[in-house]
Design a protein around this nucleic acid. Structure first.
Lengths: 197, 197
DNA sequence: CAATATAGTTTCTAGACACTACTATATTTA
DNA sequence: TAAATATAGTAGTGTCTAGAAACTATATTG
């Protein structure tokens, strides 16, 4: 088994799945942006972070975002802390069309894999992505749950245990821990998310 | 485990892996064409077949091929049977640079996966690709070894057993059975290629 | 033989993207 | 604290990808 076969398949599959034909008139780059801002946490919903994620320049990212804004899919607000910075949030209209993401076709195909291997599959992809990103000197994105920066204060047996990010020195809400972050540093080995009881 | 996570990863990984920066001055489309013509069998080394494979238009494919030709990576020859048709073959120069395919980075990442899962991984990708292609009404590409059209005449215990394609009605050489074909129809369930003794 | 289908090319246009300024705000340092 | 430097973001320009439509040449069909 040769790695180049797998590489070819991943590349080709990614290509095929999106070429379907610009659902709802959005381009591939615009879909990628919508998906990103849907999943990014509050530290990462900026043009620069999207540019880093999408492996493009800030200029290009800015254009993509501008067009989404004029189409009513994103709204912008300036950050209070840093007045250079801009935060972007999805509109309801955007959340609506995310249901017919052109990736849906690929997503269904993934769903129809044997459930027993889906986890391993996602894991393998994640690992490959991490390695490729590192080789190319690009930042790795990930969620708090496996990030070195995650700190949690408070007793674990109290349900009011609080979390914080050691990098931004900001408190984190429980529901924020699943957002994708640009400041991610792979710390703990990937842990299964413990079931919330 | 949600299929959309896997879909996102496949898409993103495919994107990241190629953005590295146009090794040797070729574009992503041109690399894809070189890879294709390297692997396609003799029925499929045409502009139209590449267009179908790459999910693009014949016009776009024509341009990609033209530029590769002028750069000395492909040579063209008209088919004898059908004088409209064109056959493309890689030059030695092309075979040379295929060694620094920008997908190499992704390929290495795939190689470093646990060997025990590489097979399952490739299998899963293949299955997803097949399903997506079918949903989108695009032709599926594959090799003779699992194609309905493959016929083999002659006694199997004779080493001179001959193969033929039932679709093109043409004989096939043993070494041609591994070429990717546009006329592929998934027949037999994917069989392990039996070791040649 | 006429109508239609197919292989391939060309031309035109929109959009993606890199590059190079450029502005505005932060941060560093001297 | 003032100056130098760094960072977030935008704007404009040029190149390339890719789709759409029009076109030529050859095959196939009725």
């Amino acid at each position: 088994m040769n790695g180049s076969v797998i590489a070819e398949l991943v590349f080709h599959l990614g290509r095929i799945a999106t070429g379907d034909g610009l659902v709802e008139g959005l381009t591939a780059a615009q879909w990628a942006a919508l998906r990103y801002f849907d999943q990014a946490n509050r530290f990462s919903r900026t043009p620069s972070a999207f540019a880093a994620f999408h492996a493009t320049t800030r200029g290009t990212a800015s254009q993509t975002i501008k067009s989404l804004e004029t189409q009513g899919y994103l709204t912008r607000m300036r950050s209070e802390n840093d007045r250079r910075s801009v935060r972007l949030v999805l509109t309801d209209k955007a959340r609506g069309i995310l249901a017919n993401d052109p990736l849906e076709s690929l997503s269904r195909a993934a769903d129809s894999l044997p459930p027993s291997i889906q986890g391993h599959f996602a894991d393998a992809l994640q690992r490959m992505l991490s390695q490729v990103s590192q080789e190319q000197g690009k930042p790795r994105f990930g969620t708090c749950t496996s990030c070195q920066h995650l700190e949690h204060n408070g007793c674990s047996r109290q349900h009011q245990a609080t979390y914080a990010c050691g990098f931004t020195r900001e408190p984190l809400l429980l529901e924020e821990l699943d957002g994708v972050c640009i400041n991610f540093i792979p710390g703990k080995p990937v842990t299964m998310k413990s079931p919330v009881t």
